[in-house]
């Protein structure tokens, strides 16, 4: 269970994507429906979501700092482009990551064209497109998670 919330877990990215999705939906709603000035429910929701995003960023930064203190030989960068969930501590972890990224590649090779066809045929609204992109993102991280699961499963000495 502890490994589930590890900084190397894709759970963090899933949470970030969910927050972003909520903010995007609220912005879309506000743009389409709100003509009023001031604090409409959608705008209040947007501020709440933005506050949650800031809280998430603070907690994520603290978690990375804590990880770096405990693992000085395998430091993670807060601002770097390499995602924290990429396991490359050694050749065994690189093998796990390679298998997981291959799964993600296969997932995108059918999910992206299918989504394009679906958007074209359904004449999806801004909400629809945002939702499809959110589902694609969730699929991306869940596929990756399934691939790296053996590294999380191996939690106890044998």
């Amino acid at each position: 269970m502890k490994q589930f919330f590890s900084i190397k877990s894709p759970l963090w990215q899933i949470l970030a994507a969910t927050l972003l999705y909520v903010v995007v939906l609220l912005i879309t709603y506000d743009k389409q429906h709100s003509t009023a000035e001031g604090f409409t429910p959608a705008r209040i929701g947007m501020f709440v979501a933005a506050a949650l995003a800031i809280l998430y960023s603070i907690i994520y930064t603290m978690a990375i700092t804590r990880y770096n203190k405990r693992n000085p030989h395998d430091k993670l960068s807060i601002t770097g482009v390499k995602p924290a969930e990429i396991r490359d501590e050694d050749e065994g972890m690189r093998m796990i990551t390679a298998r997981a990224t291959e799964r993600v590649y296969r997932y995108h090779s059918f999910a992206l064209p299918l989504s394009m066809v679906f958007i074209a045929l359904s004449d999806a609204s801004a909400y629809g497109v945002s939702t499809i992109l959110f589902i694609l993102t969730l699929g991306h991280y869940l596929t990756f998670w399934r691939g790296v699961w053996p590294a999380f499963r191996e939690t106890s000495e044998e």
Partner: peptide, 14 residues
Amino acid sequence: VTRQTVAFIEKGEF
């Protein structure tokens, strides 16, 4: 290497 990698080798997964 990590403990997980030792476990993968022992299990023949790597």
